[in-house]
Design a protein around this nucleic acid. Structure first.
Lengths: 352, 352
DNA sequence: ATGAAAGCGCTAACAA
DNA sequence: TTGTTAGCGCTTTCAT
């Protein structure tokens, strides 16, 4: 018995059991070189008998491929769990990586951009991953340059800043969701529509705001209010407080994400304002949360799982693992639920 | 110039630049062996000049340590993002791993237990991680045996099944949260309290239910209803429907998690039942979600981030990375918000 | 079609 | 204190 008593089997054990060379084993597991059918059989049975799987470390060292993808989320634990945005993206990414035996190395760092940068640096310097997926494109984003310098395969989920040639995935008809949202409100007679936006350092934040304004403009309307907020519940509550304090308060408001929308809706109701009777509320993303609450949230659905899958496939394609990177990403669409509708109260131009 | 034009620097490059042997470099970066101060200096400056960091693959191959921890979440994308439970645990784990340069390899698999098992197997066979963290202890859990067989370092977040000697982390005073919840309700005059539990294959599910029953028993009360549900919103809605259809409907209900509680609360309100006027609702976990909604959710807070941190430290300690694994995990506690209170309506013994 | 052998970048005995 | 050296488990020429 040549098998070592303890420790995992190695390629040599398999080769010995199959009565072939280690090179032969390597060839059959990698499908390279030429191997006769009988040899392949013997190797395969030996491998399965020994329950052998190539050591990731050895493969990585030898071939300079780690078969792992990295992702870093720049969020505090609280915000991360309040906005399960990332979770959905990660699910999508994983669903593509898993079948190919790729791993996902996740890092959660604090809000400081330097921490994110350091994480990428470490991923690259330690050669822990074959590529990374970036999210939340920033105005003046330096991460692409960094990763290019580090020689790291990269894909961005979202819109690149200033036509940066980084590979990126996004839905077609990106503006359709917000446009439909505005149409929906206008069709219900809303004329004073406000927008509570996210941090303006994001590319998508500005884009969506512009789409919102254009959609209103098509009806000769302008935003009744625009509030730039963070992504926190407190920010949403504060925004709603300001909106409703205005004597020309809006009759409808769009929020940058579902968590803010729900928080905003609650704030309104706490102030005695009925949703949607006095105020229509629309969120963004269509997270499960929106269906949980009462009234259920009308929101702009984003295919986050699809985006994650697409990003993974772009990476996989550039790593030569798959031929076709295309994934069907469903365009954003409005999901009408209960938080929007026509005004039912008397026009609250003069709040009590 | 000995440095290769392309490719990352290696330990040999650093050694050459510092004018020492590769062994010397290895010793200084690992703090082993004896190295003179001047030599250490030269190595350090050379390393930083070259921006060199040891290759994770080479270290892993040579030392059989990957400096990575694995975790597999068995959840559909939807459920995962509806219940950010995992997210919080992961944040806690990461916060301990990151400073030590450890990575977190995440796998998300479907609901089938076999998928989870396969994921662990792969993690072990490929030797991708030095340990794994398990969550959601199951009745008759086979994962511990599997991982023991695979020779994998393991830590469980939660209560082991049948005193399995797997290392586990949990809060002290585990029952305090639910006990306080019951006390709180009873103090407000509630006599008919229902419990909407999670899937009964979980260890904690049964435990919590038992605590609930004991706490009621201390007041000579028994559960008005007990409904075993899944963790979905639909399950919660259905449960509430059944609860409220009863002519001896409960005046208060505890849910197994916050998402269910919120969904349940919404269902009640949709049926014209006021919360907390007609029905008090209590959740479990204290996710950010509970503060977003109106009325804000009274819930049993669990220190999920602390549990994650503790689990990571147990692993780190058994890997010899740290001395002291102890982390202060805050005991569960009741967070009273707006979804509970005394009955304000007439006793709804006879529903309309 | 198959195998021998040279490393991938690093760590740890062992020598010096 | 420092350096030499033998691998860790695998992939990949290059012979045969």
């Amino acid at each position: 018995m040549v098998r070592r008593a303890q420790g995992k089997p190695t390629i040599a054990d398999v080769a010995a059991l199959a009565g072939v060379s280690v090179a032969a084993v390597s060839k059959v597991v990698n499908g390279k070189g030429s191997i006769s059918a009988p040899t392949r059989e013997r190797v395969l049975t030996a491998a399965s008998k020994l329950q052998w799987t190539p050591s990731a470390a050895a493969v990585a060292l030898r071939s300079a491929k780690t078969r792992a993808i990295g992702m870093v989320a720049r969020r505090s634990p609280d915000l991360l769990s309040a906005d399960p945005h990332f979770t959905l993206l990660i699910s999508g990414i994983e669903s593509e990586l898993s079948p190919l035996g790729y791993g996902l190395l996740l890092h959660i760092v604090g809000e400081e951009p330097s921490a994110e940068e350091a994480a990428y640096r470490r991923l690259a310097d330690e050669r822990r991953v074959d590529g990374v997926v970036l999210t939340e494109s920033l105005i003046g984003d330096t991460r692409f340059d960094l990763l290019r310098t580090l020689g790291m395969n990269t894909v961005l989920i979202g819109t690149p800043w200033r036509d940066d040639p980084v590979p990126a995935v996004q839905a077609t008809g990106l503006d359709s969701g917000i446009r439909s949202a505005v149409e929906h409100l206008v069709a219900h007679g809303h004329q004073r529509v406000a927008y509570v936006s996210g941090p303006e350092d994001r590319v998508h934040t500005r884009y969506r705001r512009r789409v919102f304004e254009e959609a209103l403009a098509a009806h000769d309307l302008t935003p009744s209010h625009t509030i730039v907020s963070d992504f926190t519940a407190a920010g949403a509550v504060d925004a709603v407080g300001r909106l409703l304090a205005d004597r020309r308060r809006p009759t409808a408001v769009l929020f940058a994400n579902d968590s803010m929308a729900v928080a905003g809706m609650s704030a309104a109701r706490r102030l005695g304002v009925d949703v949607p009777g006095d105020l229509s509320v629309i969120g963004h993303d269509d997270l499960p949360l929106g269906e949980l609450v009462y009234p259920q949230l009308t929101t702009v659905r984003q295919d986050l799982v699809g985006l994650g899958r697409a990003a993974a496939r772009v990476l996989l394609a550039s790593l030569g693992e798959i031929e076709d990177a295309t994934v069907d990403i469903r365009p954003p669409e409005l999901v009408v639920r209960e938080s929007t509708g026509p005004l039912t109260s008397r026009e609250p131009v003069h709040p009590t």
